[in-house]
Design a protein around this nucleic acid. Structure first.
Length: 477
RNA sequence: GUCCCGUUGGUCUAGUGGUUAGGACUCAGGAUUUUCAUUCCUGCAUCAGGGGUUCAACUCCCCUACGGGAUGCCA
């Protein structure tokens, strides 16, 4: 076997990409990049009842927009396919037969009802809810009879009854489980499909996965998996269980307490750059103080050894701050590209590229998500609406004088430049004696609809001379 | 219930047997700016508790508490 690092992201296509899964995918990807290994995407679709139409496509496209490109997987394939577990059922069947022959697994004819009753009973007795192993004692004859009768069955793992297992996890280091706490896990369901536990072990082995990097919720399944590797005589991959992502109340991050789908965050106007950077820091940090990373920088800085053990709260406030940061720091052209969609949605036509850039520049300094990007452009695309207080300001004597003066001067001059505007601003103060509070707010209000906002020359430049004159004129009594 | 895992400010975290326990977000105050925003500066606030070990423990060990995960013919 080669020493190549091969890691995999193995989601089940049940709808959307969870931010926790995004982090798992990212860490896998980063580890592959860091070590020059391969990043594999495998679709764990062994539960037909949870099949969601279009989920795989959605998953792949989200990974793509996040920039997490895989080396092997659906569509692009590779030497270890197929990469859909639903297309590998024959493989699993073959291996499970081997397990039965070796006495490491057995058929169980208990019905779902039997199991529910069994669990109930054990619970009331204060025991754990493991399978009681009653089908283990079935004789050859009984088994054959049952099979002949066409009785449905599952195949279970024959877990040792005593002793314990210790293994090493890259994050948690030494972990020990007593065998008598491990259930005789179902390997093949009565519909013939494998469970995650079987499929995952067989695939990881056949695909030569070197490191299993996944969420902590899998930690307690590791004994079953290691037992399988042992039963097959295979060398298990290194284990690496990531701390959970939590809600504000510290429970496992769930949909009930807000968005968890990457798609939702994207739609809301969070940048892929933000999401990647933010999620990378949930459970991993460099020794230094730096916390702003591009994907490329993460590829260099990442290390499995620096993943911490405790779960981390997904803090929206920090996410917002970081998104604001990227909104401001990324190339204006990049933000402009991202923002186009929102202008379209708002029905704002982009006619002048330079003005568009100015609009984006105005907005990016004041917003936290892209969704708000058109808010600051609105005054340029629609009629201004004034409140009572606004009208008071606009109709004051000084304001009226000011507007008349500006209209005159604008009409006198051929072209409206920044220097002209600044000159007029100065002259307003000198010739009219109108300055400060009486100068800027009324003008901005008349032209932009708000006392606060962008600098006057910027507003006027985007508006253009014609519109400046009409808007000022509109405010005359 | 049982098993496993975890615990540095409200949140994300750095840190290590001897530090004034560092940074970021949030919050408060200030500076810059015609305003808002941006930016910058300052401040508030932390080693869950109790026992050990040690000259010395946030750091190592044990216990307790709290939190989380698993306990499916889901992944």
């Amino acid at each position: 076997m080669s020493n190549e690092i091969r890691v995999r992201f193995a989601p089940s296509p049940t709808g959307y990409l969870h931010v926790g899964s995004l982090r798992t995918a990212l860490y896998n990807y980063l580890y592959a990049k860091k070590t020059g290994g391969k990043f594999i995407l495998r679709i764990e679709d062994t539960d037909q009842s949870r099949y969601v139409d279009g989920a795989v496509e959605n998953l792949i496209s989200t990974l793509k927009t996040m920039g997490l490109n895989y080396d092997e997987g659906p569509i692009i394939n590779g030497d270890f396919g197929p990469y859909y577990q639903s297309e590998r059922t024959e493989i699993y069947q073959r291996y499970v037969d081997e397990l039965i022959e070796k006495g490491k697994a057995y058929r169980c004819f208990c019905t779902e009802k039997d199991l529910v009753r069994m669990r109930q009973e054990r619970k009331t007795r204060g025991l754990d809810t493991r399978y009681n192993g009653q089908c283990l004692s079935l004789g050859k004859q009984e088994i054959n009879d049952n099979l002949k009768k066409g009785k449905k069955y599952v195949i279970r793992l024959k877990i040792p009854k005593e002793g314990e297992i210790t293994f090493y996890d890259i994050v948690r280091e030494k972990v020990t489980f007593p065998w008598d706490m491990v259930d005789d896990q179902i390997l093949i369901k009565s519909d013939g499909f494998p469970t995650y536990h079987l499929a995952n072990v067989i695939d990881d082995h056949l695909m030569q996965i070197s490191h299993v990097i996944r969420g902590e919720e899998w930690l307690s399944s590791v004994p079953k998996h290691l037992f399988l590797y042992e039963a097959f005589g295979w060398k298990p991959p290194k284990m690496c269980h990531l701390p959970l992502l939590l809600n504000a109340d510290k429970s496992k991050l769930s949909k009930r307490q807000g968005d968890v789908a990457v798609e939702d965050f994207l739609k809301k106007g969070y940048l892929p750059e933000t999401l990647l950077n933010f999620v990378a820091l949930l459970g991993w940090h460099t020794p230094g103080n730096e916390e702003l990373f591009t994907l490329q920088e993460l590829e260099k800085a990442f290390s499995l050894k620096r993943i911490n053990k405790s779960g981390s709260v997904f803090d929206l406030e920090k996410l917002n701050w970081m998104n604001g940061h990227y909104l401001r720091e990324l190339d204006l052209k990049v933000i402009g590209q991202y923002a186009k969609k929102y202008f379209q949605q708002a029905g704002y036509k982009i006619e002048n590229e330079q003005h568009y850039n100015e609009l984006v520049e105005i907005a990016r300094k004041r917003i936290t998500t892209l969704e708000e990007v058109t808010e600051f452009a609105k005054p340029f695309f629609s009629k201004l609406v004034f409140t009572k207080e606004n009208i008071e300001i606009l109709s004051s004597t000084t304001s009226q004088t000011l507007f008349e003066y500006w209209i005159d001067k604008m009409e006198e001059n051929q072209e409206m430049s920044e220097t002209l505007i600044n000159k007029l601003l100065k002259q307003s103060a000198q010739e009219l004696g109108i300055k400060g509070k009486n100068l800027y707010p009324p003008l901005r209000l008349a032209l932009y609809g708000s006392e606060h906002g962008p600098e006057l020359p910027t507003i006027m430049d985007i508006l253009g001379k014609e519109k400046v004159i009409t808007r000022l004129g509109d405010c005359l009594k």
